[in-house]
């Protein structure tokens, strides 16, 4: 023990004097290298997508790609219009957010404020389990549970329609429901953390002023947790718009206008479904769709981060 004590400070001073500067420099280089990996990844993905996504734009024309509704990549006169695909991603993600976010936030309120401990002890692990389920499992359940149910509804709704094309339940609505369930855990977990982080004094003040529990939750606690909840929504949008595996199984994958009972194709599933056998301009177009998706997510992130910053400033 005594020997150790006498050695260690000596060793420290030895490192400090001779190799200390070198070790510091080495450590700094290692840290910088690690940090630059992330930047390198983003930069190379961006570069690769731009390089492989632009040739088709010059061949086909940006206007044709973005504003034409005909997707016939293998026709004698190929058409590469992805307007319906873009609209499907916008509408599908929007509907999934409309459906999933209120349910998610109210579940978070329930867990943080309303539920007694025994109920929360059941709900909380269930939500965490939901977060860990791989997306392809959601897709499989969608095929075996959601699609048949949706097909019964479809046959009942369109029993007298002469023009409706029956999809067997693989339609926009099925995809939206699957997406809404998939974003739930993200929204619930982050919102709950935000609600729990609200200072108890805010709740106490509201209750002391005679506010009811419901008034306290909706007028005091939720506004105070706003920035955290916006983060939850941003991450939910990110998960919904980038999801491919689950919805490729339940959405039918035909290119159609995004109506609830039509078979539709999302930006992500458009890439996945035709990558296997595509060639030439067709394949380059799939990279262009990837580029569109990339730009799309960037724009949404920028807009939502701005909203998020504003949300953070007001309270």
């Amino acid at each position: 023990m005594k020997a150790e004590k006498s050695i260690l400070p000596g060793a420290g001073s030895l490192i400090g004097k001779k190799s200390g500067a070198a070790a510091e420099r080495a450590a700094q280089i290692v840290f910088t290298a690690c940090a630059s990996f992330a930047i390198l990844a983003v930069a190379s993905i961006t570069l690769y997508l731009v390089l492989s996504g632009t040739p088709a734009i010059f061949q086909v024309g940006l206007k044709e790609i973005l504003f034409s509704t005909v997707w016939a990549p293998t026709a004698a006169q190929p058409r590469y219009g992805i307007l319906y695909v873009i609209l499907t991603s916008v509408v599908g993600t929007g509907l999934a957010i409309l459906l999933g976010v209120p349910v998610g936030i109210l579940t978070a309120v329930f867990l943080a404020e309303v539920a007694d401990e025994r109920v929360a002890a059941v709900v909380k692990p269930a939500v965490e389990l939901l977060a860990g389920i791989p997306s392809v499992i959601y897709g499989l359940l969608g095929i075996y549970l959601l699609n048949p149910a949706m097909y019964r509804l479809e046959r009942w709704l369109f029993r007298d329609s002469a023009t409706h094309q029956f999809t067997g339940g693989a339609n926009l609505l099925s995809a939206v429901i699957v997406l809404a369930i998939m974003i739930l855990p993200t929204v619930i977990n982050i919102s709950e953390t935000a609600i729990r982080a609200v200072p108890p004094s805010i709740k106490a003040a509201s209750l002391a002023l005679g506010g009811s529990r419901i008034q306290t939750i909706f007028k005091s606690i939720l506004p105070a947790a706003k920035s955290g909840i916006v983060t939850a929504v941003v991450l939910g949008v990110g998960r919904a718009i980038g999801e491919a595996m689950a919805i490729t199984l339940v959405s039918g994958s035909s290119v159609n206008a995004p109506l609830p009972f039509r078979s539709v194709r999302f930006l992500t599933t458009a890439i996945v479904s035709e990558m296997g056998y595509s060639s030439g301009t067709h394949r380059q177009m799939l990279f262009t769709i990837g580029l569109v998706l990339f730009v799309f997510i960037m724009v949404i992130n920028l807009i939502l981060t701005r909203v998020l910053k504003k949300g953070g400033q007001t309270p």
Partner: peptide, 24 residues
């Protein structure tokens, strides 16, 4: 060629078989 009105465009033989088997 290119006149087909598909309600489902699936990306593998297995997926077509599964869909047909399970959809009345």
């Amino acid at each position: 060629e290119d006149q087909c009105a598909y309600a489902n465009e699936l990306d593998s033989t297995g997926a077509v078989m599964a869909k047909v088997a399970s959809t009345p």
